[in-house]
Simulated scan of single mutants.
Amino acid sequence: MNNMEQSFTTIQEARQWASLFLKEHQREPGVADWLLEHHLNMSYTQLMAYGRDPFPHEKKDSFVADIYKHTETGIPVQHLIGEAEFYGRRFDVNADVLVPRPETEELVEGVLRFIEKNGLTSEYLKVVDLGTGSGAIACTLSLELEHMDVYATDISSQALGTATHNAHQLGAKVNFYQGDFLAPVAGEAIDIIVSNPPYISHAELKELSDTVVQFDPHLALFADAEGLAAYHTIVSQIKSYHLTPMLIACEIGHLQGESVKEIIETGLPGYHAEVRSDINGKPRMVFAYSKTSVKSPDY
């Protein structure tokens, strides 16, 4: 893959070449569209509408270079373009944070539905996002329900720098703190806890793609105790800080549902935990709430 000269002359030809090249090298062909939209500053609709237009000569080398780079290394396309979309907004991303995933939007949606179902849309609530990373969850909750007081914590100062930048860019009011999950906000009476914590066991390292292993921050991926350490820590902190949140909402690995449910219900006897499936039918979320005071966050 050392020949940078390609024969395409139009936008459509560039799309066809890149898609086929990616597919031949076992990469996702759709990456071609993402990179075309980025380099040409076009929407997908514009790519289709202006496909017969000449491909700008001055942008050809950089586009081809990104296609080669992704193919050779597996670097996430979001790292190449420097941003990712989450809940209809664009977040800056880099090697210090996980790329926000569409499935995590369903965790946010579950929290919003819980608030609506329990008649809390106009209430003053304190919400904390644990392990905030890019700040996608915290910023989204802050912007969707402006009356909430949103906190976000992360053990990584680099991740917090990215999250703070995203909050500033989006106009989200989030209070960021560095530390281990709930430790930095131990004195606050938290109403809702939401987290997409590290949940991959170290034993699963060999099964992961090169994109994940080489480019995602391992601090945000892996956890001890077969991937369950973070949930043990969060529940332990809730107990030791005498917190009584209305809702605890966590993303989980697709095989961890019953284990996380047991960790919560055993550690916090007053709570009922429900395992929820994502849009792909995989159990990827746990919502835990008081058995007596609130309603389930049904979809």
Rank of each mutant, 00 (worst) to 15 (best):
P297V: 10
L219K: 09
D224H: 12
R284F: 12
S277H: 08
F287Q: 00
Q237I: 06
Y271T: 03
A220D: 12
I252R: 00
I263T: 02
V213P: 01
S293A: 14
Y289A: 02
I248M: 07
G281N: 08
I279C: 10
I264R: 00
A288L: 10
V213S: 01
T266H: 10
Q256H: 02
Y271M: 08
Q214M: 11
Q214R: 13
V260K: 04
Y289P: 01
S240Y: 13
Y241H: 11
S259H: 15
L247A: 01
P269V: 07
E258T: 10
L247M: 01
G253R: 02
P283R: 02
N280T: 06
K291V: 12
F215S: 11
E251L: 06
I279W: 01
V275L: 08
F215A: 10
E258L: 11
F222G: 09
S293P: 03
P283H: 07
Y289M: 12
G270V: 14
K239F: 07
N280M: 07
H232G: 04
I248F: 05
E251P: 03
T244M: 09
M285W: 04
T233M: 11
L255Q: 15
C250H: 08
I238Y: 07
E251A: 02
K239V: 06
S259A: 15
H254G: 01
A288M: 11
G257S: 14
T292F: 11
S236F: 08
H272M: 08
H254Y: 15
M285T: 01
H242S: 15
E226P: 00
P217F: 14
A288Q: 06
T292Q: 08
D298C: 10
T266L: 05
D278T: 00
L268P: 04
A249L: 08
S293F: 09
L243S: 04
L221P: 06
M246W: 06
P217K: 03
I238N: 02
A288P: 07
K291M: 14
H218I: 04
S277E: 05
E265Q: 15
T233V: 13
I234E: 07
M246Q: 13
T233W: 04
H232A: 03
V260M: 03
L221D: 09
E265I: 05
F287Y: 15
H242G: 02
F287C: 02
T292W: 05
E258C: 01
G227T: 15
H242Y: 15
D298N: 14
P269N: 06
S259C: 13
D216Y: 08
Q237M: 11
K261P: 06
F215N: 05
S277W: 03
I264Y: 03
S277Q: 13
L228A: 04
